[in-house]
Design a binder for these strands. Sequence first.
RNA 1: GGCCCGUUGGUCAAAAGGUUAAGACACCGCCCUUUCACGGCGGUAAUAUGGGUUCGAUUCCCGUACGGGUCACCA
Length: 495
Amino acid sequence: MDFFEQMEARIPHGEVRTRFAPSPTGYMHVGNLRTALYTWLIARRHHGKFILRIEDTDQGRLVEGAVDVIYKTMAECGLTHDEGPDVGGPVGPYVQSERRDLFGKYAKLLCEKGGAYYCFCQKSDEEESGGETGEIKKHVCACRDLPLEEAKKRVEAGEPFVIRQRIPHEGTTTFHDASFGDITVENKELEDQVLLKSDGLPTYNFANVVDDHLMGITHVVRGSEYLSSAPKYNLLYEAFGWEIPTYVHCSPVMRDAQHKMSKRHGDPSYEDLIREGYLTEAVLNYVALLGWSPKGENAEREFYTLSELAEIFDISGISKSPAVFDINKLRWMNAEYMKKLSPEAFFAKAEPVLKTVITNPAIDLRAVAALVQTRCEILSDLPERVDFIDKLPEYSTELYVHKKSKTTLENSLSSLQAVLPVLEGLETWTNESLYDALVALAAKLEVKNSVVLWPLRVAVSGKASTPGGATELCALLGKEESIARVKAGIALLQK
RNA sequence: GGCCCGUUGGUCAAAAGGUUAAGACACCGCCCUUUCACGGCGGUAAUAUGGGUUCGAUUCCCGUACGGGUCACCA
């Protein structure tokens, strides 16, 4: 058994195998996350294998610790892989830089098979572009017609070379994409692309084809920017005599109608979103629906767990047109996820954030969390909602004037003055007892509840908008602090 | 510029020849209410455009416009 046969023998058959092949950039684009998710879902849906392959051939872009970021993100999202650099598998290595030697062998094999040829043209020969005419210059040279034996002699003699794909000049190539359907192009539009560079390393397109085949990948999921190189892939598979995988091209995630989301333009990556206080589950759920939609009876359903998606995900639901990322809808969806959290789970997430603005140990953070759980969309909203608890902010008396509650500066002052002794005389300091006492006071004064409660809420919070009503805030702040703030309010109104 | 792909409300999108063209976000209004919110109810808003094919086109075909992708010894 020769080398190539050995490699073939390793390839698993009879199962769906998909792969996510990120290059280690140090963060996860939203678009990449979606691709990873779809790729994972296809594997899970068919009870197949999901493979993680690190594409680190671009040495110039290497980022320290970036591979760990990939592991961490995938694990955090629940996109577990069955094979990869860290867990191994039958078709390793799973890091592209460790597969380096493979590609030269396969490129030479392809030359033997006639699908490629040695090319001795110097890079500088074709450096000139089409210039102002805008014409694209395709590489055409005599090396293509060099007899193989002669070319090999020159290689052995040490002459620098690249290996280029031999693309037929005539005819057309048709490839099939699971969501775009059949696409046919004229072969004359295709260039004899370089497969193996003069430094002996493969180009991305070549490495991909070889790796995907040797790893037994059945479904190639990738961005639609690769759509136009797909015919060349097909020709490559055919020249090798390999089975062509199912292509699943996904349109990009856009910032607006004409721009892809990009880190460079300040669009958030997955890590940015998490840092801003979005929940992983919400991000995944939202991203799943960006460019894919469920069919049939699920068409109106929007909330899914990962495992629910794994049951119903269907390639045919992938959309062909680009989708604009709507942070607004993500916010809404995140809020829904927060509301669904158990009080304990929400507290666990909220506590660290609350602690950044509430340092008073007398404050019951669980009570704060309970109040705020249905009133925030993302965790980073929290500080601004509860910062008044530690310290009463300076506020304008204008806050006391509220038409709907029928409050004015004058009746606010008298309300607070009436409230003060009630609070001071209150034995039991709970939301219920506070509410009962103050409603009774309003009845006694013969005014609407709000005439009493609105000014109190303002006095106690100094804010127009708070995570709870007057009595809830008083209960939270405690008797002493509440009374102090009411007195401060009275003083302010008396000025 | 050549080639390829796409186009349903502001956004995500359903409807795979016959529907009053779903649903969700956002927006607006009303109700609830101890603020804001939550919740409930309701509303505004779309098949890019011109031709075909068909008894009938969002759906099929062609053109146009607009948008995107691609045309490296980058991935």
